[in-house]
Design a protein around this nucleic acid. Structure first.
Lengths: 146, 146
DNA sequence: GATACAGTCTACAGCGACTGTAGAGGCAAG
DNA sequence: CTTGCCTCTACAGTCGCTGTAGACTGTATC
């Protein structure tokens, strides 16, 4: 197999060129070979590794978690429970976030349903945002962006 | 009512001092009065406004949306439908995000259930992250952080 | 060979929504 | 008057990238 440039790797793994260079800079992809003129050269292994990273990102894993997973991947004889632990932790985070969002959804729906039109001055949606008191999702922890 | 310092406003509205200054810098809170020595001075109105911002943030509204809402709040005679539209949009985003996360939850659960222990080399979780093919959440759009 | 154009290179700034730091000055209680 | 917290400004850092500028490289067409 002959090596490919960063652009080919990019379309093969569906990760942007700039992102690949970024991943290299944070040590997620090793330092690739270079052509005589200094262009990065990659092989099939890199496509796999980068696709792995992409899918893990799509599953919401943090960069740190992904680094750990890649580290484990290179030691296939270790016990699999470390991997399991990372995945479990990720699932727990997803479920926590789901619960938050479900509460949010209920609250937004309630706000909107109570709105019967009219002027902003008497708007129930505004009132709902103002009166945090009656609200089921009270004492939120800081909500991360959607 | 006598004015309060930023620290009092902070505890009254449950928004950090630094965050209040940040909100001021982006034009979310007007420029407050200052004491002779240059300390910011706030009144009850500011507590309300800041609490409104906090709750809107907790509901996941973007800063831009909040700016719009505050703008509307100061014109109580306008039609309420503008407020409704913003809330509807927010609800739609929450629901979209919920759907993504539910798909994620299913996939993570499936991965973890298939894991029967053993070595990393044969780990089904790893395999699942590698094989994006069989996965129901294929062609994700970029997932925002949890 | 000349030219055009896409691809690649480095280095750095910017995004959102804050948080943290440094170093200086202000204010009230004991 | 000292102690100890509060406030001030200004700027760097967070995360996971994305965008920009300006220069070089590689390939296809004439």
């Amino acid at each position: 197999m002959k090596p490919m440039t960063i652009g080919r790797l990019s379309s093969a793994a569906k990760v942007k060129v700039t992102t690949i260079r970024y991943y290299e800079s944070i040590g997620l992809m090793g330092t690739p070979d270079r052509s005589a003129s200094g262009q990065r050269l990659y092989g099939g292994v890199d496509v796999e590794r980068l696709s792995f990273v992409r899918h893990a990102r799509e599953l919401g894993f943090s960069m740190d978690a992904i680094k750990d997973l890649i580290g484990l991947q290179t030691e296939p004889d270790q016990d699999c429970s470390a991997v399991d632990t990372i995945a479990q932790k990720q699932l727990a985070e997803v479920q926590k976030r789901l619960a938050q969002l479900e509460a949010l959804e209920r609250e937004l729906k309630r706000m909107i349903e109570n709105c019967r039109g009219g002027k902003v001055g008497g708007c129930q949606v505004m009132a709902a945002i103002n009166d945090h008191s009656e609200c089921e999702t009270d004492k939120h922890e800081r909500l991360k962006p959607l």
